[in-house]
Simulated assay, not measured.
Amino acid sequence: MMWRHWLTVVLGAVFEVSWVVGFKHATTLWAWLITGVAVYLSFYFLIRASRSIPAGTAYAVFVGLGTLGTTSVGMFVFGEPISWLKIALILLLLAGIGGLQWTTTKEAN
């Protein structure tokens, strides 16, 4: 059930996006605490996934999804500029992430 391990990477990336946004926008103690928890959980899930997925592949997908999520949140939530070039590069990033997942053949332990 390799998909469960990939789901763990995705979950880690969701928390990565959360702490990146938190670092930029946190202004209260509670917001900083939530950001700290998000940092911990993002790396917890990455480390957990890397027990079954090659670490380099898991990390590349984790960072790629984090970049995709952070860029998307910036554009669609915080009003950062959107361009066709940015969209094309995001699609290229998605192709790379999908390719890494597709070519990973190590079976789960």
Rank of each mutant, 00 (worst) to 15 (best):
L11V: 03
S52Y: 04
R51W: 11
L93I: 05
K24L: 13
V17N: 00
Y40K: 05
I90G: 12
G64Y: 04
T27D: 05
A60K: 09
T57F: 10
G96S: 15
I87K: 05
F76C: 00
V39H: 10
I82W: 01
S72D: 06
F78H: 09
W30V: 09
T70G: 00
M2D: 13
L93C: 06
G69E: 04
A95C: 10
E16D: 08
G74H: 03
F62G: 08
V20T: 07
G98R: 03
F45T: 02
W19P: 03
I97A: 07
F45L: 04
N109H: 08
G69Q: 01
G22Y: 04
T103L: 15
G12F: 06
A58C: 05
Y44D: 11
E107F: 11
T8K: 08
A108C: 07
M1P: 04
G22R: 03
I34A: 11
G22D: 12
G56W: 01
L89C: 12
E107Y: 02
A26S: 05
G79I: 03
Q101S: 11
F62N: 05
V73K: 12
V20Q: 01
Q101D: 01
L100S: 02
V21S: 09
S72Y: 13
E107I: 05
I87H: 07
V9K: 00
W30C: 01
M75C: 07
V63W: 02
A108M: 12
F45W: 12
L33I: 09
G98F: 13
I47D: 04
V17I: 04
T105V: 15
Y44P: 07
V17F: 02
K106C: 10
T8Q: 11
M2C: 02
T103M: 08
A49I: 00
T71Q: 06
G66I: 07
V77L: 08
T104N: 09
W84F: 06
L100M: 14
L7P: 00
T103H: 12
A95V: 06
L7I: 12
L94T: 10
W32T: 01
A38Q: 14
G36E: 09
E80L: 13
W30D: 01
K24V: 14
S72F: 15
V63K: 01
I82P: 00
W6C: 10
W6Y: 11
T71M: 12
V17W: 00
N109P: 10
V39I: 15
L65F: 02
H25C: 15
I97M: 08
I97P: 03
F78M: 12
G66T: 14
F23S: 15
L89R: 09
F78T: 13
H5R: 13
Y40I: 14
V39C: 06
A60E: 13
H25I: 12
L41N: 13
I34E: 03
T105P: 15
N109Y: 07
S83I: 00
A55H: 04
L41S: 14
L68Q: 09
V61L: 11
S18P: 13
F76K: 01
G56C: 06
M2P: 07
F62S: 11
W84M: 06
G64C: 08
T28A: 08
M75E: 14
W102G: 03
A13P: 02
M75A: 14
